[in-house]
């Protein structure tokens, strides 16, 4: 509890404006910061900009604003789709061998580690020790929901100010967004009227907490239409 109170204070302090810098260090432009957030700069330059954020609250704020415009990361990651196609081409014996390998690795993976005080990663979105604050989407990934009863659900987070839900098309055009203090959102059918039943929608939840910290869920897919 004390640790979380301390983190709360740190998040608040991080957002405090600092003194105008007097150093000679050149400040990255807002356009460059935007490109860095969107992964459109070299890795080296991105790292320089990230280190600069600790010395310049103005740049840090510009970065946070650009974060709000960032498309869901999973949308641009096509590797999982290619991986799925690759599995289809494998012969049966290959699949069986892979399944055995996965089981063996799984057994070792779930064996207790020698250091019980070293907690494991939570849901993959939060770092170790912070898993109790993770947002999990309860609505199953890839689920089909009728337009008249299109309700998205997620788990509850403590000390919540509000949840923000964003639904986009695969072209990242926003379909619907809303803020709520409950852990579900019913989307008006009118907002979904132009969506084809074969068209996947992406959605995620951002939680704004009273301490100023922000948590984000993973991005999942949902379809409009009857089962």
């Amino acid at each position: 509890m004390k640790k979380h109170q301390q983190d709360h204070d740190l998040f608040e302090a991080w957002r405090e404006p600092d003194e105008p810098t007097t150093s000679e260090e050149p400040r990255p432009s807002d356009a460059e910061i935007f490109d860095a957030v969107m992964l459109n700069t070299s890795l080296e330059r991105r790292r320089e900009i990230i280190l600069h954020l600790a010395r310049c609250s103005d740049s840090a704020e510009s970065w946070r604003l650009a974060m709000e415009l960032k498309p869901p990361a999973e949308v641009v990651d096509l590797s999982s789709r290619h991986a799925r196609k690759a599995w289809r081409n494998l012969p049966a014996w290959g699949l069986a061998a892979a399944a055995v390998l996965v089981m063996v690795i799984g057994v070792f993976w779930i064996m207790p580690t020698p250091d019980p005080g070293f907690p494991e990663i939570g849901d993959g979105n939060t770092f170790r020790g912070d898993s109790e604050h993770a947002i999990e989407l309860i609505t199953a990934d890839g689920l089909r929901l009728p337009a008249e009863d299109f309700e998205l659900r997620w788990n509850s987070i403590d000390q919540i100010e509000e949840y923000r839900v964003l639904i986009t098309t695969t072209d990242l055009e926003a379909v619907f967004s809303a803020a709520t203090q409950t852990t579900s959102l019913r989307v008006p059918s009118a907002a979904l009227s132009s969506i084809e039943s074969t068209e996947p929608l992406y959605w995620y939840v951002t939680a704004l907490r009273r301490d100023g910290s922000i948590l984000r869920s993973s991005t999942q897919t949902v379809f409009v239409g009857d089962q």
Binding site: I50, R64, I121, S213, L215
Partner: peptide
Amino acid sequence: ILHLQGHTVP
């Protein structure tokens, strides 16, 4: 820095 900015681990 990125954690304080609100980024997830991935």
